[in-house]
Amino acid sequence: MSQIDIKVEFLGGLDSIFANKRSYEVKVDNTKIVTLRDLIFDVIVKDLLVNPEENYSIYIQDETIRPGILTLINDSDWELEDELDYILQHKDVISFTSTLHGG
């Protein structure tokens, strides 16, 4: 079974629903192709999200990342990287930044 390492970061106050931890190292099984969608719904929501009944809607809306949260794949806007269909690579850095808090 082969695995890849992914770094997941929750910034801009989003760490508050992920045990106040900004950065996570995640190992993902990639015996078959893994997309960002798999990472979000099978790993982040299941293992990292604290108190999912309450916090799920802060992070996810209409089966995607909630509008107002910026998703960056290796510092690139995910709109330029196929969004949820992006195929994860070893050592990728995925960051989620909330823009919804006050300025």
Binding site: D75, Q89, K91, V93
Partner: peptide, 9 residues
């Protein structure tokens, strides 16, 4: 303050 990580890929 902890800055966001730099990507390596």
């Amino acid at each position: 303050f902890t800055p966001p990580s730099d990507p390596v890929n």
